[in-house]
Amino acid sequence: MHFGSLLLNSFELQHLLPSAKLEVGHHLYWQLGGLHLHGQVFITSWIVIGLLLIASFAATRNVQRIPSGIQNLMEYALEFVRDLTKNQIGEKEYRPWVPFVGTLFLFIFVANWSGALVPWKLLRLPEGELAAPTNDINTTVALALLVSLAYFYAGFKKKGLGYFAKYVQPTPVLLPIAILEDFTKPLSLSFRLFGNILADELVVGVLVLLVPLFVPLPVMLLGLFTSAIQALVFATLAAAYIHEALEGHGEEGEAH
């Protein structure tokens, strides 16, 4: 009875004044010189970064020999990230890339989960609404371009200009495809992450709009799962691209 009345209540409310709404495409614009910044993305990014920083400081403030509490948790996270990087890049060269890949993974993971777990909508902005930073294409493009820079840097650092040899390595016929790959990599990386997170938030938002209670729960839980998977996928692919740049086609062929 109670539940029913609640539902009915909200339904009426929706008709009277559309309270639950989707605000996609609205942004809290900040002006910085000639740039229009999406303020809500920055706010949530800073919060996510702050969370990670606080967790890191808390974990390393009082380092014990036998880890407990947050130190144990963060060490576990570090181990996870290190194993991920090691699996992708290989025992020999993975070490310098752990911070980069680990930062990507942790930032994306916490950002995604913050979007799925934190009731951002409690805070009303002048325009737009707070959500996961990764549901803005600008964030994911920035991350993907960082990955591009990283693997180019890795390749040039390892082989110098010889890095370009990998473009014509199996056969020069594939040169256009090899060049195209450099553009599709950041494109697919950014759109995959952005699309998944935005789609998840949209689905949850639409379901909440239609049925405010309980029905969105499975989708929200699924969203948590997808968010975690997307963070893992992004970090894994970043590490894989770096590995590819480090190895090159020729060496890979020899290894097989």
């Binding site: 909200s10 409310l13 309270s19 639950a20 709404k21 777990l117 934190v118 009731p119 909508k121 409690l122 949850v204 909440v208 405010p212 209670l213 309980f214 969105p216 729960l217 929200m220």
Partner: peptide, 9 residues
């Protein structure tokens, strides 16, 4: 509460 999706969250 409903708009903020608080209960589900």
């Amino acid at each position: 509460i409903f708009e903020a999706n608080l209960i589900n969250l």
